[in-house]
Design a protein around this nucleic acid. Structure first.
Lengths: 136, 136
DNA sequence: CTGCAAACTATAATCTCTCTAAACAACGTC
DNA sequence: GACGTTGTTTAGAGAGATTATAGTTTGCAG
């Protein structure tokens, strides 16, 4: 997996900062991170990169299709290094996202779409947690 | 539909501000609004209500089960006056949400959950738009 | 090399939302 | 109907995430 080539194939210049951030993100493990976590990871790795560059880079990666943005809550954005079609389980108590491999979940019964529209994405978010005692 | 009774049944005092905001929201039509839109609607209706109260009230309505929070993007929160189990189509080009009645969509193939967890919600968001010419 | 466009940075600005502390109102009690 | 308690409302400050700005630096074509 040549990251420099991956960047260039996506239409992005292969700069040192981008390469370093890409190395943090695409280390083989699928991950779900927020921008501040990326900045922290970068700092820990001894990389001197400004917060603005972290945001710029993440947004460029999303635009280039290298990352996927996940709308988990309105607090902040999360970025998913797995860009293949797949879904998520969100463990609310632990604030942890778990991937559901693509193709495992089937969504049926979609209604007719408005005239001239096509489906761009079907997002499924399964929110789980310990049973609520107040409900029982 | 007695709104004052509805508030009290939800454990909220029936105050003039809450009643007025409830009247704006629960006018019969299901709607999806952001906090600033509610503030604007209130102002247009001649209601003098502070932004803090709009936020407080919306959050209380969510906690009381009168509203549902929808995570559409990370910019802001949207509130859905339809609290029944249902799903959404998001028309990206028009930034418009369309309800899919509950029970119409079926999601199958959910994986096993972590130990001691139960499903709290299954959110489905179908993003649609005009076919992208660059993809064609 | 040289020049230009793109990238990077620090900082300011913006935007959504919450906190704070004080004024105010609902509601039960007498 | 006044009183006290408690919950509401408010203006404004504050917090946190993200973007805009403007100047400097860097990559890369010629």
């Amino acid at each position: 997996m040549d990251l420099a080539a991956k960047l260039q194939a996506a239409g992005l210049r292969s700069t040192p900062k981008r390469l370093a951030i890409a190395r943090l993100l695409f280390d083989g493990e699928d991950m779900h991170v927020a921008a501040d976590a990326v900045a922290r990871m970068a700092a820990q790795a001894g990389l001197r990169v400004s917060l603005a560059t972290v945001y710029n880079t993440l947004n460029q990666f999303v635009a280039a299709g290298l990352l996927r943005r996940v709308n988990l809550d309105s607090e902040r954005s999360y970025f998913d290094t797995n860009t293949a079609s797949h879904q998520h389980i969100y463990v609310e108590d632990e604030q942890r996202l778990i991937d559901i491999p693509g193709g495992q979940i089937r969504v049926s019964g979609l209604p007719a779409l408005p005239e001239g529209m096509e489906v761009r994405a079907v997002e499924v978010m399964v929110r789980v947690g310990a049973p609520k005692p107040t409900q029982g």
